[in-house]
Nucleic acid binder design. Structure first.
Lengths: 234, 234
DNA sequence: CTTCCTTCGATACAGTGTATTGAGAAATAC
DNA sequence: GTATTTCTCAATACACTGTATCGAAGGAAG
């Protein structure tokens, strides 16, 4: 039985009133501050002045906690008032999808762990469904086959781009958030590898000015790619 | 100091000759069979008839083992003989990128855990560099700015699409690899959610024939999107 | 043969997710 | 009102994780 089907245990007016909401929020705070690895049932429970086993009334497994965390962030992404379908497939489907993608990226930058979990588990929570709903609704009343093609392609890009961006961000910070230090740390090794001559294209790319890829720009290309699908019918 | 910089300890002709190669292969076999969570230093060591601490001569942390595993799969992806740059930006850059994307996907289907790790850690291993090299080389001598735009966009799509596909595959298998059983399990919950009327677009999508999104098709769209960049020159 | 230095395995520790169990309180029955 | 049942919670326990420490064994150098 899925988490979202099970009712919460009635909140006893016991010492500290607990709830899924509070548990999830504590877990998210922990993950935001100290990373996903720091999220243990013991620490989450401790943050709420409770024993670890207390949580098992609200969750039946740690996986479920992660599911709830992910769903919570989906809730941050989807604009709360946008349940209604957008304009009937005008040309603003691009703007709508772009907006959603941007919000997804921003949420992932706020909650870096989200990028690790995104797409790694089936999303059936209410907010994940709302997210899916919002995605599909961007295309108005376009044919369902077209909609799924467009949305899944764009979503795949967003997922991958966000993941890459967060990873790079972490890597930079790992060496002391100094770009110079980063080059200095990875430099010797990379230089030696490139000196082997086995990676000429990489060498050319490293020596050139570093144009780090832009999220919005890549998104434009992807949207360009699927645009004929939606305007051209099919 | 990175793993790839450190030499292996000289292989004593001790009871069982160990090597990074053997360790990584054992770990990969374990991950393929029982999932990434089953990869523990103890189990890997046991598979090689060694104590857990023995591995610390070859690795200094479990993270490094994961890095080596990822790099090994990169080695499976990149065609071994394709170090030379492809044709000078003809029109076969599409074919080359497609080939590489397909091979990436196939590797992820062979090693599902690869999808979980892909893009989650900086890739600087020799095979990862070769992969990057092969990606960049697909575009021949196109301007470096264009190359990075194209490759990073395509890679983002591949990463996201592969991840989604593997996740769905796992979800289906979790209920007993029966599509009917899957619908039956998730059905009641989904039906109830859809009955709330809050997800009309999702409902339309679920009721319609389920066109699961195709990897190659989405890739085509993305390539279409970046095509003007490479043919039109920057 | 003795000495030294490397390498290995055992032990140990802090931390994890979770099953079990026993105490205590709330709710019900009389 | 008291007695009994039921439910909730916290403590304990277990198997497991990654890794530090340390003592012993074994090959190399003198």
């Amino acid at each position: 039985m899925l988490v979202w089907e099970r009712p919460e245990p009635p909140s006893r007016p016991a010492p500290s009133p607990l709830s899924r909401e509070r548990i999830v929020r504590a877990a998210i705070d922990l993950a935001d501050r100290d990373g996903l690895d720091a999220v243990s049932l013991r620490k989450v429970a401790a943050a709420l002045d409770a024993g670890p086993m207390r949580l098992y009334g609200y969750l039946s497994t740690k996986e479920e906690l992660l599911d709830l965390m992910v769903d919570e962030v989906y809730g941050e992404i989807v604009p709360s008032g946008s349940a209604g379908p957008a304009g009937p497939s005008g040309d603003d489907w691009r703007a709508a999808l772009t907006e959603l993608a941007r919000r997804t990226r921003e949420a992932a930058l706020r909650h870096e762990w989200f990028a690790d979990l995104l797409g790694s588990r089936p999303r059936l929570g209410p907010n994940a469904l709302a997210y899916l709903e919002a995605s599909l609704a961007c295309l108005g009343d376009t044919a369902v086959g077209t909609v799924v093609r467009v949305v899944s392609t764009v979503n795949a890009y967003v997922l991958g781009a966000v993941r890459r961006e967060v990873t790079e961000l972490r890597a930079e910070r790992a060496t002391g958030m100094d770009e110079q230090a980063y080059q200095a740390a990875r430099g010797p090794y990379l230089a030696r590898m490139l000196a082997t001559g086995r990676y000429p294209a990489v060498a050319r790319f490293v020596e050139g000015e570093d144009v780090d890829p832009d999220f919005d720009e890549g998104l434009e290309y992807v949207l360009d790619g699927v645009a004929p699908l939606v305007s051209g019918g099919r």
